[in-house]
Structure formats: C-alpha cells, structure tokens
Amino acid sequence: NSLAEAKVLANRELDKYGVSDYYKNLINNAKTVEGVKALIDEILA
C-alpha cells in the first residue's frame, strides 16, 4: 500500500466513527504508512 492509499483508507475509517478534523489532519501529516496505522490504532482505541 502506498502512503496516499493508507491516508484515504484511514480517513474513511475515521468518518465511520465521526472523528473530528483534528485527527484527520494528524493522519494527513503522517510521513509513513506505519505512522498512519499507529495513529488509527491510537485514535480508535
């Protein structure tokens, strides 16, 4: 998966839960796919 794909999928996942734009910005600023995954795990914990 590319970083861009990971960000799109992460933001879709956040949308399902009604997560605020603050967290979407964190996702969009992530530098690695692993970073995106770690943020998602933390946000949805």
Rank of each mutant, 00 (worst) to 15 (best):
S20L: 08
A4Y: 10
Y17A: 11
Y22E: 09
L9F: 08
L26R: 06
L26S: 03
Y22Q: 08
V19N: 06
L14S: 05
K16Q: 07
N1V: 15
L9I: 14
G18V: 07
V8A: 14
A38Y: 07
N1Y: 13
E34Q: 09
T32S: 10
V19P: 08
R12T: 11
L9C: 06
Y23S: 02
V33D: 02
L44E: 03
E13Q: 12
K31H: 11
E34S: 09
S20T: 11
R12P: 01
K37V: 07
L26N: 03
L14Q: 01
L44A: 04
A45W: 12
N29S: 13
N25T: 14
L3E: 01
N25G: 08
K37I: 12
K7L: 06
L44G: 03
N11M: 09
A30G: 04
N1H: 14
L9N: 15
A6P: 00
A45D: 09
L26C: 04
K37G: 04
K7D: 01
D21Y: 08
V19W: 11
E13F: 14
D15Y: 08
N28H: 08
A30N: 02
I40R: 10
A10V: 02
N11W: 15
E13G: 03
A45S: 10
L9E: 12
N28W: 13
N28E: 12
D21W: 11
V36T: 02
K31F: 09
G18W: 05
S20A: 12
S2H: 09
S2P: 14
K37W: 15
L14Y: 02
A6V: 09
Y23N: 03
N11R: 08
S20N: 10
D21H: 10
N29H: 10
A10E: 01
N11C: 06
G35R: 13
L9Y: 08
N29I: 08
V19D: 05
A45E: 08
A10P: 00
K7S: 01
S20R: 08
K37Q: 09
Y23T: 03
Y23K: 02
V33W: 06
N25R: 08
V8R: 15
A10F: 02
N28Y: 10
S2D: 14
E5A: 07
R12N: 12
S2A: 14
V36R: 00
E42I: 14
E34G: 05
A4L: 10
L26T: 03
L9D: 12
I43V: 07
I43L: 08
D41A: 15
N29C: 03
N25K: 11
K24Q: 06
I27V: 07
V8T: 07
R12I: 15
G35T: 13
K31M: 15
A10R: 00
G18N: 11
E13S: 06
T32V: 02
V19M: 15
N11Q: 14
Y23P: 01
I40S: 03
G35F: 06
I27M: 02
L14I: 09
N25C: 07
L44D: 02
S20C: 05
L14E: 00
L39Y: 04
L44Y: 07
E42D: 10
N25A: 14
Y22N: 06
A38K: 12
L3G: 00
A10C: 04
E34V: 04
S2V: 12
L39I: 13
A38T: 10
L14R: 01
S2L: 13
N1Q: 14
E13T: 14
G35P: 00
I40D: 00
K37E: 07
A30K: 04
Y22M: 09
N25F: 09
A4C: 05
E42M: 15
N28P: 01
G18K: 09
L39W: 03
Y17P: 01
V36C: 01
A10S: 02
L39M: 07
N28G: 07
L3K: 00
V19C: 08
A4Q: 13
Y23V: 05
K24D: 02
L26Q: 07
G35L: 12
V33K: 05
E13R: 06
E5D: 11
E42F: 11
N28F: 07
G18A: 04
I27P: 00
N25Q: 13
T32Q: 02
G35Q: 13
E5H: 08
V36H: 00
S2E: 13
E5S: 04
E5P: 02
I43E: 00
S20Y: 04
I43K: 01
N25P: 03
V8M: 14
G35C: 10
E13C: 10
L39D: 00
A10L: 02
E42K: 11
L26F: 05
N28V: 06
V8P: 00
G18R: 06
K16I: 06
A38F: 11
G35S: 11
K37H: 12
R12E: 14
K37C: 04
S20P: 12
D41M: 14
G35H: 15
D15S: 11
A30W: 01
I40E: 03
N28A: 13
E34M: 10
L14A: 15
G18D: 10
K24H: 04
D15T: 11
V36N: 00
D15E: 12
V8D: 15
K37A: 11
Y17Q: 07
T32K: 02
I40F: 15
Y23R: 02
N25M: 09
E34D: 07
I40P: 00
D21E: 14
K24L: 05
N1M: 11
E5L: 11
A30M: 12
E5Q: 10
Y23H: 07
E34C: 05
N11D: 04
E5R: 05
L39P: 00
I43R: 01
L14G: 03
L3Y: 01
Y22R: 08
E42T: 12
S2R: 10
V8H: 13
K31A: 14
L14W: 02
I27E: 00
A38L: 13
K24V: 06
K7V: 04
Y17W: 15
V8Y: 14
L39A: 04
A6Q: 08
V8F: 14
N28K: 09
D21L: 10
R12A: 15
V33N: 03
A45N: 12
N1F: 13
A38H: 08
Y17H: 14
L39K: 02
N25E: 14
L14T: 03
G35N: 12
A10I: 03
I43P: 00
V8Q: 14
G35M: 15
K16L: 10
Y17G: 02
K24W: 05
L9P: 01
Y17V: 12
N29G: 11
N25V: 07
